[in-house]
């Protein structure tokens, strides 16, 4: 990979990499819809991967500050780098974009986000939606623009095995293209609980905004632009139906959504 910049969400970021870094491995931790180039307009900052100096200081750097140590060109290191790159993007996102801990898809024209903590079943639900023909927007980190619309921000789909994530290599699902921002019609706060049955309660706008606030991908960004962030969340919840509940099988959520349309 010779490019010195990648562009994502309308911003440019510098990228300094050692020649030894495999292209396929780098693409695992950079946003999947990044566009690489040799020129940048208004570069926000630079990510640098250092693996050549003393071993102790090897790692991924952002603006010369260590983000994460380098453990090798492996899956775990890529996972750590991916999440920290996403956090760095999120910290530079407001007022144009807000990052939420949420899966996001478009099923039959219905824009859906399903916020939740790690291990709440977002990836499983995303995969279930995709198997039923949904368009893929995100499985863990959903991006919303300043009008409250969903922006494609896909990462390599993951499947949890025990405590570890494994990337799903065979991706035959349809991914929303860059520029296809989608209105959000449904917000589903669904926690997985073995044996549970999905019988959700409908939330008011305020309750839903409050719960979305708890699912900000990068809470400190709120300090910079709270008014904008609240405005975006209000736009999301004002235009959507919002539900809260425990779910068992992911397929019952898909049935629920299809029953609404």
């Amino acid at each position: 990979m010779d490019s010195s910049f990648f562009n994502v969400l309308g911003k440019s970021f510098g990228l300094k990499l050692p020649e030894s870094a495999p292209d396929a491995w780098i693409r695992r931790w950079l946003p999947q819809n990044s566009v690489f180039s040799e020129e940048a307009v208004n570069c926000i900052g630079t990510f640098e991967l250092r693996v050549e100096e003393s071993e102790l200081e090897n790692g991924l750097y952002w603006q010369d500050e260590l983000l994460c140590s380098f453990g090798g060109y492996d899956e775990e290191t890529a996972d750590g780098f991916e999440a920290l790159v996403q956090m760095t993007l999120a910290s530079n996102s407001l007022p144009e974009h807000l990052f939420l801990h949420a899966g996001a898809v478009d099923l039959d024209g219905i824009g859906i986000i399903f916020p939740g903590d790690s291990r709440s079943g977002k990836s499983t639900l995303t995969r279930c939606f995709l198997e039923k023909g949904a368009k893929y927007y995100s499985d863990d980190c959903a991006v919303v623009d300043s009008s409250g619309r969903l922006v494609p921000f896909p990462s390599a789909l993951k499947q949890r095995e025990g405590r570890k994530n494994r990337r799903v290599e065979d991706l035959s699902f349809e991914t929303a293209g860059t520029g296809t921002n989608k209105s959000i019609d449904l917000v589903l706060f669904s926690d997985f609980e073995s044996g549970a049955s999905w019988a959700p309660e409908k939330l008011s706008d305020s309750e839903a905004v409050w719960r979305l606030l708890q699912n900000l991908f990068f809470p400190p960004a709120m300090r910079e632009n709270p008014k904008e962030a609240l405005g975006i969340l209000r736009s999301v919840c004002g235009g959507a139906e919002c539900y809260l509940g425990k779910r068992g099988e992911a397929s019952e959520i898909v049935q629920f959504v299809r029953g609404l349309s």
């Binding site: 790692g59 994460c68 453990g71 775990e76 999440a83 920290l84």
Partner: peptide, 22 residues
């Protein structure tokens, strides 16, 4: 978690250890 058994300095982003990726 990247290099199990070791400690490392990571950018905290205001989060606690465990909430910071890796």
């Amino acid at each position: 978690t990247v290099i199990p058994g070791t400690f490392q300095c990571v950018s905290a982003f205001g989060l606690d250890c465990g909430a910071i990726p890796g």
